[in-house]
Design a protein around this nucleic acid. Structure first.
Lengths: 179, 179
DNA sequence: AACAACATGTAATAAGTTACATGATTGG
DNA sequence: CCAATCATGTAACTTATTACATGTTGTT
């Protein structure tokens, strides 16, 4: 099991939306994905040139008057194939599904729905376990002086899992209508 | 601005709860913090021995019959001082506050409350911005074919920020009663 | 007999951050 | 004229993951 390189898929995904530059990738991620993803120039630029060397993207320089020329990257068939293989493959990390959803139009709703169902099922299994923890913590200082603080966090975790579960259900319904 | 080493503070925090071993740290994090934190043995054991070398912890070997002896680590005054300095200091990363809360008993409620208030304020400022995005995305395919998928994610983000905001308010009230 | 849990650790590798370096253009 | 934004990139560093290595004890 190898590590997943989020940066690579963020960049590849952005490229799949149309020709773009490193600067624009950063802007987009900051503006519309900042509450869940981040990416730094130190990842973007090396990733972009690696992608080019590997045949996943092509580059065109655009002269902009006096300034530094823009480097506009475009995804290739090979890049698209790799992106789709990742999108279709299994999620190995928490939240990987959220990133995949950003490029959801590259899959059909019925490829996405089972993934959302699996995610929901996982949360459904975890919720009663968290409820147990809550009861344990409420019944006594089982975790020493930090118990009241863990309790706050666990309450948050419980509500958070519940939110994810509900969101999955709603999203599944929305995707079914899109089909 | 330097990177924060979560692993170091997770281990230091666990040590502040009483003498413990690397194996136990892993177990605890997995059992009670897994929905938000993770830590691997590849981080735990080197961190533990670094902490010892730096005078933040002391180690005692406990022979357990035939098996490999347990290495029980205990936090020192220096380690506690470092932990508290971090707890009192500013949060530089998203979710750092959640980790600090795990060891909340080392601070007074009125040291924690302003931190929660600041976090809530941040979310209160971001919520109307996300509401704007939602309107923008609902009014047309502003982000190409991925728009319906971004919309799902942004809805989640909005509800999530709302949840965090509400949780802050409830936690602040709980902490006020603890005072 | 097999398997999970207890228990510690290292080496190779990968992923991500920060600080730095450079310079044009646009708006107030 | 100053600050922000546009625009690209590198080097040093830190942080984290994975796979491997080893062996015991308790449970089924």
């Amino acid at each position: 099991m190898h590590k997943i390189n989020y940066a690579r898929y963020i960049v590849l995904g952005m490229l799949s939306c149309g020709p773009t530059t490193g600067y624009e990738v950063k802007r987009f991620v900051k503006e519309f994905m900042s509450y869940i993803w981040d990416i730094s120039y130190g990842q973007i630029y090396p990733t972009l040139s690696l992608l080019e060397r590997q045949g996943c993207a092509t580059m065109n320089e655009e002269k902009t008057g006096g300034g530094r020329p823009k480097k506009v990257y475009q995804i290739t068939d090979q890049g698209l194939t790799e992106l789709q293989a990742w999108l279709r493959g299994p999620e190995t990390k928490e939240y990987e599904l959220f990133l995949k959803l950003c490029f959801g139009s590259l899959l059909t709703p019925d490829e996405l729905i089972p993934k959302l169902e699996a995610y929901r099922r996982k949360r459904e299994e975890e919720l009663p376990i968290m409820e147990e923890w809550l009861k344990t913590m409420e019944s006594g200082p089982v975790m020493g002086p930090n118990t009241p603080y863990y309790l706050l966090l666990t309450k948050f975790g419980f509500d958070y899992f519940h939110l994810e579960k509900e969101w999955c259900s709603q999203s599944i319904e929305t995707l079914k209508k899109l089909e």
